[in-house]
Design a protein around this nucleic acid. Structure first.
Lengths: 235, 235
DNA sequence: ATCAAAACTTAGCACTGTCAAGATCGCCCC
DNA sequence: GGGGCGATCTTGACAGTGCTAAGTTTTGAT
């Protein structure tokens, strides 16, 4: 009786006239949006499905027609994050002058990884708190290894340019990934600020700093055994 | 009437005859212990103060005489973790043949950092999910920068052995810390398993791998500008 | 022995995740 | 068009939670 179908009667501030197809229009996406906002405001621990539902203008039980569980909602956010991360990384490569040059390619990916964490902290955290935390396994169509693969591939390209028997490619993959992931986590969770005088590097520069340091070290390895053959051996 | 003061009447399995000074003996510590166990079993998200209290054999409201808030309990666990981490790192140094040799010292610390994360995952996660998550700021006497300082100091010692103008010490600190922290997080949260064929390194070796890779790269930097002056310049 | 404070209990509030049952709504097929 | 049927949403309820207020014991110091 009081609920009109236009959605005008409810105080949903964002995009109230989208395109109401069903009762709500697209509750699933609305819930994800609302949840991300709420998490941004109060932290993931104090997110409640009921409040998200309230925010979306539906009843408390409505979400359960789209997510079997609160953990599934969080998994959906994480899944979104994985596709966004892959997009960001591909973008970073595409923006390169020579996308095939191994070292710049790797460095661009690394910076993109850390930047993504800073720009999408909520998603990032949910993406990498899988086994723990109240997040279900990732849903059907989601494949995190797409993003990981980009990184792995880029590292292996760099590894090929190194003199043989220098460093096993696998170890380098692990090192590079740990590096950017750790940088992202440290920036996100803020222990850098705790190490008072020791580190005065701004959050926005942590990614670039770390990545270029690794690049410089790799250059040394390149140069140490034979002259300066750091061209692109794209074979 | 049914509760004897000896503590025998309650089904607390661990150390039931410690030294009952007050009602319980040492509820605060018991709650911490029980909480860690419960988190290990069901994850931190589904920890409830009430269940921890139950496990400790006290009423639901008892914990509030020791922790103002559930988040404070978690902070206490994190605080314990920080002193344990510092101990582990000091131990790692002490076990060294020559604790003053810069590179071995740094590598030992790095391995200890990652090993600690693997051996105390619950503490580690709470330690580094401060700003986010439902954890209060660390309590009074806790100083995380003690552990950080060890690492920072060790990195700076290594930096001093590098030829000047190679890499800024700060960047190296950030790099080393990110490296070990990232390795720890990747091992703990398990995305390594997701990157299927790419990485076949066992969890227990991730720390050593990553640390020795960095060490090797630093060696290249050492060797590149002048011969092989990688002695211990303990000045 | 006394007594204030510390440690604990009981009872209760507001809230949560989740479920079962019913009410609507939109769409497809005749 | 009308009938139906499944997807979508609501109402109502249950058990469990964090936390508080008000009492009750116990403790250690005086």
């Amino acid at each position: 009786m009081s609920t009109t179908r236009t959605g005008k009667a409810k105080p949903s501030r964002t995009k109230e006239r989208a395109k109401p197809r069903y009762h709500h229009g697209d509750l699933r996406a609305a819930l994800v949006r609302a949840s991300v906002e709420l998490i941004a405001r109060d932290g993931v621990e104090s997110l409640s499905l009921r409040e998200a539902a309230r925010e979306a203008g539906v009843s408390s039980a409505a979400p359960y027609h789209h997510f079997a569980t609160k953990a599934d909602l969080l998994a959906a956010i994480a899944a979104d994050g994985f596709v966004a991360l892959e997009a960001s990384m591909r973008e970073a490569i595409a923006g390169l002058e020579d996308p095939e040059a191994p070292s710049p390619r790797l460095q661009a990916l690394g910076r993109a990884y850390v930047r993504f964490a800073r720009e999408h902290p909520i998603e990032f955290r949910l993406m990498f708190r899988g086994s723990t935390s109240a997040r279900s396994p990732l849903p059907k169509g989601c494949d995190p290894s797409a993003s990981f693969g980009l990184l792995v591939d880029a590292v292996e390209r760099v590894a090929e340019t190194l003199p043989p028997n220098t460093i096993e490619p696998q170890a380098l993959v692990l090192t590079a990934w740990s590096l950017v992931h750790g940088a992202a986590e440290l920036v996100l969770e803020g222990p850098l600020a705790t190490a008072e005088g020791s580190i005065t590097i701004a959050d926005e520069q942590v990614g670039a700093t770390v990545v270029s340091t690794l690049g410089r070290l790799l250059d040394f390895a390149l140069v140490s055994k034979h002259g300066a053959r750091h061209g692109r051996s794209t074979t």
